[in-house]
Amino acid sequence: MPLIDVSGSPTSQALPPATGITEANTTSVGHAPVVTLVFDGPTDGKAFSAAAVLRSEGYAGTLVGIGPVGIDRLTQGFRVGFDLLEITDTELQQLKPCHLAPFPHHYQPNPNGHPALKKSA
């Protein structure tokens, strides 16, 4: 199944074996250039926190999420630090810009250095 980046472009990427999420910290992944985390189901969000932890601890390599992420969760995945996320061929055909960036602002800081926390007016 295709992997897409934050712009929605499909990319070919050779993936290493998936990393167990309970070990997903910088000690376990070291300087691996690519780390793959698995979504076990369409409502499983454990990998969102695993990715956030890795980015928080300074992991700078490529983070890949595989499994049933779903196009409505792509924005969450990219915002917590994934570089590439897996979608199905059908989802790729349905993909629109609004699925990748549904919100003009966010309340939370972003580990990739994207939009900052909103300050209350």
Binding site: S49, Q76, F103, Y107
Partner: peptide, 17 residues
């Protein structure tokens, strides 16, 4: 509460707990 409302609204990490 309002601080929590803003912080938790559409939080990308915690939408699939």
């Amino acid at each position: 509460c309002e601080l929590i409302r803003q912080w938790s609204t559409l939080h990308p990490e915690f939408a699939s707990l």
